[in-house]
Design a binder for these strands. Sequence first.
DNA 1: CTCATATTATACCAATCAGTATATTTTGAT
DNA 2: ATCAAAATATACTGATTGGTATAATATGAG
Lengths: 193, 193
Amino acid sequence: MVRQREFDKEKALDKAMELFWEKGYAATSISDLTAIMGIQRPSLYATFGDKEKLFEAALRKYTNLHASLIRTKLQSTTSVKEAFRNLFEELIEEEYKNKVSKGCFCINTIVELAPHDEKFEILTREHEMYLSVIFQETLLKGIKSGELESNLDVKALAQTLVVALIGITVLLKSLPERSFVDKSVNLILSLIK
Amino acid sequence: MVRQREFDKEKALDKAMELFWEKGYAATSISDLTAIMGIQRPSLYATFGDKEKLFEAALRKYTNLHASLIRTKLQSTTSVKEAFRNLFEELIEEEYKNKVSKGCFCINTIVELAPHDEKFEILTREHEMYLSVIFQETLLKGIKSGELESNLDVKALAQTLVVALIGITVLLKSLPERSFVDKSVNLILSLIK
DNA sequence: CTCATATTATACCAATCAGTATATTTTGAT
DNA sequence: ATCAAAATATACTGATTGGTATAATATGAG
């Protein structure tokens, strides 16, 4: 069966992801999307359904990539403390380097859509919960290796690190002084004992 | 000089604030605004300039009200620890009570507009910095009264509490389990020694 | 080669967007 | 009473929105 698609579906979805990530749902038009995806309007609708379905596909792709990225970063060092420090510091470094700080696509969606659309409320919540599970596993590894104290409340600490990550990510978008975020990261990391 | 305005400018601005707060800048139309403000379209433009100016006026009103509210809450108890606990717990209570959680208008604006508009980057950053100053003053009061340890790093702690407040406020919009936020609030508050 | 099918490109749709022109009405000062 | 100034209500603007109809093109199966 017949004529094949001339564009790469995943590459087009990547482009859509980047744009939704940067501009949000409402501020991104179909014309913006087709321009950056390099496809015609009917191709977008035939391939991805409609604007909301495309957004959902882009967000799902993002959360998968993001979870893998976080997991990889946390496994890159034997020291768990060091791993978390690197995670936060690289996040900060990235945001100050880029011209326009896109932040986290999932967090942006929590703020813009979660309160008005149950589908995105669930999707974004589950991603944050998943991150806290990754954090828990990492902390447990640190306890087993003897690096961390065995009486740590792993669950509470992991959830607090998620809250802190969200707080830092959002605050970075307003470009606060570097020392502001550095100081709070230091204090938060001091909870990992 | 002549015919007087038939509507209350401040009440109309309040209504605009509520709507922008709930739906954000892009998703709120002028028609939505005139409907809820109870005024005609030309009255809106004559009184507030244009959509962006109205948004800015609404946000400025919000940040003023919000700062006063936070200051009042923190002064309501003699115990500083208790005051911060109440602040976080009332925030959580409010968000679970309301049907649609609007979160914090300033945080919503950081996410939606700060990266694309320097005016809002500055305005929102200054509000968050101001909150951290209020927190610092409160912590200093606690040290003076003998409630808190005198060797506390007040600045770092205040900034961390701002980060935590942002993180909690955002996460609440995805309606996580109550225990998730409760656990992290407990751990964060444990930093106030 | 032929035909069914899917993709493409162009052009279009009604609805809504932010913002305004116009004309009417209200008001206080003279 | 008259007139200038400001607020009102209605109706409109051109541009843009999300989404499609149509027709041309490409492709594998028979």
